[in-house]
């Protein structure tokens, strides 16, 4: 459980990504609903041969202490992500009038 194991002779120091072909089970993303009334939210991922086994594994890996009352599992490959570079979200910065704080309301008017 240490995080600083010094480099020693024989240790692999090359970048290990993409060297070894993946023969294992597919990757699933796990979403947990902590309690009724709340959204399922992303908890992490795991490997499993199919959805049914993924739900079982998710229960053991992510809800050992009543962290949830319901789980969803989604094949990681089925998730389409946005391009998180600025262009996609930047325009919102130019539109302060979409926020309530853009408007000055006189104090006498009171809470609005």
């Amino acid at each position: 459980m240490t995080y600083e194991v010094p480099e020693i002779p024989g240790e692999q120091t090359e970048d290990p990504t993409g060297h070894h072909e993946e023969h294992g089970w597919p990757l699933w993303e796990v979403f947990v609903r902590p309690k009724r009334g709340l959204n399922h939210s992303h908890a992490g991922s795991l490997h499993a041969p199919d959805a049914e086994a993924a739900v079982q594994n998710a229960r053991d890996a992510y809800t050992r202490r009543a962290e949830g009352i319901s789980v969803w599992v989604v094949p990681s490959a089925a998730i389409h992500a946005s391009d998180d570079s600025e262009a996609m979200f930047e325009p919102f910065e130019d539109r302060p009038y979409r926020h309530p704080t853009f408007y000055d309301i006189p104090d006498e008017v009171g809470q609005m």
Binding site: V5, G10, Q12, T17, H20, E22, G24
Partner: peptide
């Protein structure tokens, strides 16, 4: 990095 690769590196003593 894949899970298989990490396990392989542990089993062969290439990661500590």
């Amino acid at each position: 990095v894949s899970r298989d690769e990490l396990q392989h590196l542990l089993h062969t003593g290439q990661q500590k």
